[in-house]
Every structure is written in structure tokens, then in C-alpha cells.
């Protein structure tokens, strides 16, 4: 078990080092998320009633699509260099590679979210310091990155990987996005905090299932 987490930590550190040098993933995902939010802000008349209705959806559409962009690039980098094979040749379980890539993706998505959320709050005139959004964002990001890492590993072997990933990924991750949108809506419109408690356990349950199933699926996908 110690070997697994040590190997996963090495892969996370490697991904962070590569990202610090290239800024490939975070910059492209961030720009994409900002464009989506700005376009929606211009397209919709942000009256208080409408904001409560659409803002959480806009936020998670932006974050999820930006995440897809990052997930594709993260796995494409491994595939194009052939370096995923080098990771697979290490004497560690393939789940270590999955957890390493998945945690790296979680970190990149959280960085994007930390930069996007304040801009989103300012544009849609919502409370900037909505502390209740933190657990929602953490749990939803974990679910999105878990499923996304598996499907990115699958899609990267196909010719049209940029199209293939969303097609494979969204039907599976819909429950996580729905729960995140509902919970965020409650937090952002300052409804009773206890109402989010319905959605947080649901998000946690989805994450638990994904964290068990996804490493097994990843193992089957990466071994030819």
C-alpha cells in the first residue's frame, strides 16, 4: 500500500513539474472556462431570479468542459511521448498510475476552479465567500477527475480523441454534475445550509463508487 501511494505521489509531482514548465493544461482549461462564463453572462440578462435558476448550471458546464480539455491534454501528453508505457513498466500496480494521474487532474481542476469561481461570482453578482461551495467543489471535482481519467485513457487511443472523451464521459458523470449543480444552487442563493446535506452525501457516494470501479477499469484499458 505504501508503494502504491509513493508511486502515485511521484506521478503527481511529475505532472505538476511538467505543468509548471508548459502551463499547457491549466491555461487552456482556464481560458475555456472564462470564455464560457463571459459568454453566458452576456447572453443572459442577469436578473436575481434568473441567476438563481441558471448560474449553478453555467458554473458547472464551464468547469466540466474545461476539465475535459485538461483531461484530454494530460493523457495525450503520456500517449504522444509513449511515456504511459514507461509508467506501466514500473513494478507497481496499475492503480498507482491511475491514482497519480487522477490526483494530478484533481489539482489542475481545483486551480482552475479557484481562479474561475471569484470571476464567476463577480460577473453574476453572487456571494464571493460562499464557504459551502468548497465541499461541493472538492467532491464534484474528485468524481469528474476519476471518471475522466479512465475515459481519457480510453479515448486517447482513438483517432478523434477530443470528440470521443466527452461522448464517453458525460453520460457516466451526469449524476455528479446534477448533484453539484443542485448543491451549488442552494449554497449560492443562500438557502438553508441543511438543504445541501442531501446532495453532499450523494456526491460522496458517487465518488466512493468511482474510486473503487475506475482503477479496475483503468487497468483493463491500459493493458492491451
Amino acid at each position: 500500500m505504501k508503494t502504491l501511494w509513493r508511486a502515485a505521489a511521484l506521478i503527481v509531482l511529475k505532472d505538476l513539474m511538467l505543468e509548471l514548465r508548459t502551463r499547457d493544461i491549466v491555461v487552456s482549461a482556464l481560458l475555456f472556462a472564462l470564455i464560457v462564463i463571459v459568454v453566458f453572462n452576456f447572453a443572459l440578462d442577469p436578473t436575481p431570479g434568473l441567476i438563481a435558476l441558471v448560474a449553478p448550471g453555467v458554473l458547472w458546464v464551464a468547469v466540466t468542459f474545461a476539465g475535459v480539455l485538461g483531461l484530454t491534454r494530460s493523457m495525450a501528453m503520456e500517449k504522444d511521448n509513449g511515456s504511459l508505457q514507461a509508467l506501466m513498466l514500473a513494478p507497481v500496480g496499475r492503480e498507482a498510475v491511475f491514482y497519480g494521474k487522477m490526483i494530478g487532474n484533481v489539482v489542475f481542476m481545483l486551480v482552475v476552479e479557484a481562479l474561475v469561481f471569484p470571476i464567476f461570482a463577480a460577473l453574476f453578482n453572487l456571494p464571493l465567500a460562499a464557504a459551502g461551495l468548497i465541499p461541493v467543489a472538492l467532491l464534484a471535482t474528485l468524481g469528474i477527475a476519476s471518471v475522466g481519467t479512465v475515459f481519457a485513457a480510453m479515448a486517447v487511443n482513438t483517432r478523434s480523441r477530443e470528440v470521443m472523451l466527452p461522448i464517453l464521459f458525460f453520460p457516466v458523470v451526469v449524476p455528479v454534475i446534477l448533484a453539484a449543480v443542485e448543491a451549488s444552487g442552494i449554497v449560492l442563493t443562500a438557502e438553508s445550509g441543511s438543504a445541501t446535506s442531501r446532495w453532499i452525501p450523494l456526491l460522496a457516494a458517487f465518488d466512493a463508487v468511482f474510486l473503487v470501479v475506475c482503477p479496475i477499469a483503468f487497468n483493463l484499458i491500459v493493458e492491451e
Binding site: T3, R6, A7, L10, K14, M17, L18, R21, T22, N81, G82, S83, Q85, A86, L87, L89, A90, P91, V92
Partner: peptide, 25 residues
């Protein structure tokens, strides 16, 4: 040893080799 060197282009040779040495424990 395969056709491709299986390395990370953005890392130096030393960083690549040290990473894989650590992955081998």
C-alpha cells in the same frame, strides 16, 4: 527498450532517469 525512448520531453535526462529510478523503488 522499445522503438520510442519513452521519456518526458519537458524533463531533463537526469529528471527522467531519477523519476523512473524512484518508481522502481
Amino acid at each position: 527498450v522499445t522503438h520510442q525512448p519513452l521519456l518526458y520531453d519537458e524533463l531533463t535526462g537526469r529528471e527522467n532517469l531519477t523519476l523512473f529510478a524512484r518508481l522502481f523503488g
